[in-house]
Amino acid sequence: MLLATRLALASPRITARGIEASEFAVEAERHGVRAVPAIVVDGRYAWAGSVPEAVFVERLLGAA
């Protein structure tokens, strides 16, 4: 979450939302979230789990 926040602050092109999965269970289900943290990029499930900054950015730009 911290990385997503940093990226959103660094670029006007990036937005970051944190979503509490049990309160927003319908949205979590819609994206196929089974484990947290789960990353959804542009409305599509991307990956689950924490990764280093460089890997996060590579995956993010690859998924976008």
Partner: peptide, 14 residues
């Protein structure tokens, strides 16, 4: 991220 030429929306479910 400076190279980004499109919008990117990140949702993190927690």
């Amino acid at each position: 991220v400076t190279e980004l030429d499109r919008d990117v929306a990140i949702d993190v479910f927690v």
